[in-house]
Amino acid sequence: MDVQKVAELARIRLTDEEAAELAPQLEHILKYVDSLQGLDTGDVSPTAHPHDAAMPLRADIADNPSRRNALQMPAPKTESGLYVVPKVIE
């Protein structure tokens, strides 16, 4: 596994030392989960949800009052009700 490439996908900065330390641990985990490969799963259907219960639908009634101020309270930086992030376009 290319640890730095995966870290880039996961948007986690890793120093080279961290990557070097993580690499054997992640290899060990992958080697362990590779035990699944020996099992013939042929046409077994995958389970994404433990029960076969149908997803329930709720009545289409708007019940979402504006709570912008409360919801933005925990944000690191806001302005005029917007989230502020570093400049994206030069």
Partner: peptide, 20 residues
Amino acid sequence: DGVRFGHRCSNPADLSDMYT
């Protein structure tokens, strides 16, 4: 991701630097 809640690193150089 440091946008809506939780920790944000100090003085991010750009968006990607902020996330990572």
